[in-house]
Design a protein around this nucleic acid. Structure first.
Lengths: 250, 250
DNA sequence: CGGCAACTTGAATTACTTCAAGCACGGTGG
DNA sequence: CCACCGTGCTTGAAGTAATTCAAGTTGCCG
């Protein structure tokens, strides 16, 4: 909350967007690129641990993550926290608040995060003039829905070991797809994050992770999880992975 | 699967759509109504218990529920089933398959269901010519995401009693909002459905429902659950309910 | 009448939580 | 330099919540 947050005028022009080159994202035509670069209002940089969006607030902006890791979560009144999903470069934040008024979840940075800031007011002109981008927004929302379906299946019906395996396979696969690892494949999460994602206590999470480590599927390091065998984790969880095709982003 | 499914040519014209009058849905202007009535290809009626969509299939169509109840679910290879959400009149089905190719969940009817069938191919013209409807589709997807967030919080972090209370309050509120009850407020589900939604065994679900009944919050009837005190259930689960405003539908 | 589907109940077992204590590490201030 | 926190990880033991097993009831349909 009281962490440093720096706003700059557009630093990285959309034409040079570092995400645009990556193989997993779809390309823009000149017209779309032109619109998005006007849609973009600036950039925001936050520290690890900072809160990016708060449940209940009326977010004035829409964000796309340029770099870093974050997570979406909800809390009950007595403090019980459920992590809903993880946020990585290319992901859109704040659509809910923009479309329906009030944010229904919070977002917190796991690492230093930089965000593109978009103007909420211009969203309607996106729908009026750029059908392909409008379609992309629906696509993004539908994709998030798909992921949440899988998480729900996991929390509701998988055992603790399967659940943990699914989560780590999922995170590893997503991070790999956008080349987020520079050599080492360490997920920047604590065991408390894992526990709050799986719906387990931290003690049981610790013991479960240890079992995965014994099977040589992961290794726990200072401040993170090193995935040694993503396919092995996916197999253990009976999970088929995410579709590979190109995905849109704004 | 082998249940009766009847397809007719457009029986109910969109101008006379029975949902259009209800207070919880937004109204269409003449232009939108005209487009949708051309977008609509026909109607489909299925029996209770019939499968409407199957995971893994390439659904050729998009549906809007006209009447009846259904549910979306996923299954693991060994048969464990997780119900993801319930489907009521006004809800859209098959967007995932239309937008991303393959359905990632199945849908089964809880009661006799009638559906409007839309042409997948014409979806792009919707985005090109009717920005307001395109926005509605994103809205619908974002809303579903919001609901799934709540379910995830519930399954992950609430106790069995709170979970059951949340689910029944949610179903009751949704059904009330679209006036789905004709006098009696009985949800057409079995305890197995409740169990597969909450991520609990059927035995424990039975004992949990009995506790809710002892508190006079619900009453279990032949073939369904009668909600006696929706607010009491919501309070027990620390749940604030769904936003009341008008919602779009296609 | 028999058979199936949905619900119920008690008892034994397992999975998971809570409590409690301790260790390793990094950062801060004396 | 060392004492001292605080955070994150680890471990064992006791307690609770939920599952599984097993059997029985009820109502409905052919």
């Amino acid at each position: 909350m009281s962490k440093t947050a720096t706003t700059n005028d557009t630093r990285t022009p959309c034409e040079l967007c570092p995400l645009r080159g990556k193989p997993s994202f779809r390309e823009f035509d000149a017209d779309e690129l032109d619109f998005v670069s006007h849609f973009k209002r600036g950039e925001l940089a936050v520290d690890a641990g900072a809160t990016i969006l708060v449940e209940g607030s009326h977010s004035a902006h829409l964000f796309t993550v340029l770099s870093g890791w974050a997570f979406r979560y909800k809390v009950l009144e007595d403090g019980r926290r459920q992590i809903l999903n993880y946020v990585m470069p290319g992901d859109l934040l704040g659509l809910q608040g923009t479309i329906m008024g009030e944010m229904q979840h919070s977002v917190e940075a796991l690492s230093p995060v930089t965000l593109c800031v978009f103007e909420r007011d211009k969203l309607m002109t996106l729908y009026n003039r750029h059908a392909s981008l409008a379609f992309d927004l629906t696509w993004i929302a539908a994709q998030e829905e798909r992921i949440l379906d899988e998480h729900l299946l996991s929390i509701g019906r998988r055992s603790a070991l399967e659940r943990a395996a699914y989560l780590l396979a999922y995170l590893h696969q997503r991070a790999s797809a956008i080349e987020l690892f520079s050599g080492r494949t360490v997920l920047p999460v604590t065991q408390q994050h894992i526990a709050d994602t799986l719906g387990l206590s931290i003690v049981h999470t610790n013991k479960t992770l240890k079992k995965l480590a014994e099977r040589k599927l992961i290794r726990w390091q200072e401040r993170g999880c090193d995935v040694l065998d993503g396919q092995g984790l996916a197999d253990l969880a009976e999970w088929n992975g995410i579709s590979e095709g190109k995905r849109p982003f704004i």
